[in-house]
Simulated assay, not measured.
Amino acid sequence: MDRNELHRMIRVDQAGEFGATRIYAGQLAVMGDRGPQSAEIRHMAQQEEVHRARFDEVLAKRGVRPTALHPFWSAAGYALGAGTALLGPEAAMACTAAVEEEIDRHYSQQLDRLAETGAEPELADMIAEFREEEREHRDAALAHGAENAPAYPLLAGAIRLGCRLAIKVSERI
């Protein structure tokens, strides 16, 4: 694995974790502390803050430039979170389920690549740990009614597509 590939990997992961913190901030701004979904979102948001902070450390330690799109991801993540929460708690959970499904896929691809090259065992361990927590988030969102959101297949599909595009763009910019 060359330096550029490794930097793209770290850059996009840090951007993704940052985006997740913004999604949850938007959801909590709308939902407040009402209902079991809010408590679950608050818990997931705390874990995402830890993920982001750890990727911030990796970024700094390795001299990886962050994505230039941070201001955009900040606004877009917050808007996605607030917008889905405005549709109701099930839509907020649908957002989480969709995002985490894509992050699971993305982290799994990265772990396959790291295993293939035998590179960066510490990074691989961190990504594997975070992937398990992201899977827990997806499962919790489904347990809290994500699939009951209005137009769930359409909503989830659109969010998943947006995530895939965000990943591709953040790797490069």
Rank of each mutant, 00 (worst) to 15 (best):
A68L: 11
A68S: 09
A68W: 08
L69P: 07
L69M: 13
L69Q: 07
L69K: 08
H70C: 10
H70W: 09
P71C: 06
P71A: 07
P71D: 06
P71G: 07
P71R: 08
P71Q: 06
F72Y: 15
W73Q: 04
W73T: 05
W73D: 06
W73G: 05
W73R: 06
W73H: 06
W73P: 05
S74I: 11
S74C: 13
A75W: 15
A75E: 11
A75I: 14
A75L: 15
A75P: 08
A76E: 12
A76V: 11
G77W: 08
G77R: 04
G77N: 12
G77C: 12
G77K: 05
Y78N: 13
Y78G: 10
Y78I: 07
Y78D: 12
Y78T: 14
Y78L: 14
A79S: 12
A79G: 12
L80R: 09
L80C: 14
G81Y: 02
A82K: 10
A82N: 11
A82C: 09
G83H: 09
G83M: 12
G83S: 13
T84C: 15
T84H: 11
T84K: 07
A85E: 08
A85I: 07
A85N: 10
L86K: 15
L86S: 10
L87N: 04
G88T: 04
G88F: 02
G88C: 05
G88I: 03
G88A: 05
G88H: 03
P89F: 06
P89M: 08
P89Y: 05
P89H: 08
E90D: 13
E90C: 07
E90R: 14
E90P: 02
E90I: 00
E90T: 09
A91L: 03
A91I: 04
A91E: 06
A92L: 12
A92T: 07
A92P: 08
A92N: 04
M93E: 01
M93T: 01
M93Q: 03
M93D: 03
M93L: 03
M93A: 03
A94D: 01
A94R: 01
A94P: 01
C95R: 04
C95V: 04
C95H: 05
C95S: 14
T96S: 13
T96E: 07
T96W: 04
T96P: 12
T96A: 10
T96I: 11
A97M: 00
A97K: 00
A98L: 02
A98N: 01
A98K: 00
A98C: 02
A98Q: 01
A98W: 01
A98T: 00
V99F: 05
V99T: 06
V99Q: 05
V99R: 08
E100V: 00
E100S: 01
E100L: 00
E100K: 01
E100F: 00
E101P: 06
E101G: 08
E101Q: 12
E101L: 09
E102Q: 15
E102L: 12
I103Q: 00
I103Y: 00
I103D: 00
I103K: 01
D104Q: 12
D104K: 04
D104H: 08
D104S: 09
R105A: 15
R105G: 07
R105I: 11
R105T: 10
R105Q: 11
R105N: 11
R105M: 11
R105C: 08
H106L: 03
H106W: 04
H106F: 02
H106T: 02
H106N: 03
Y107L: 05
Y107C: 02
Y107I: 03
Y107K: 04
Y107V: 02
Y107T: 03
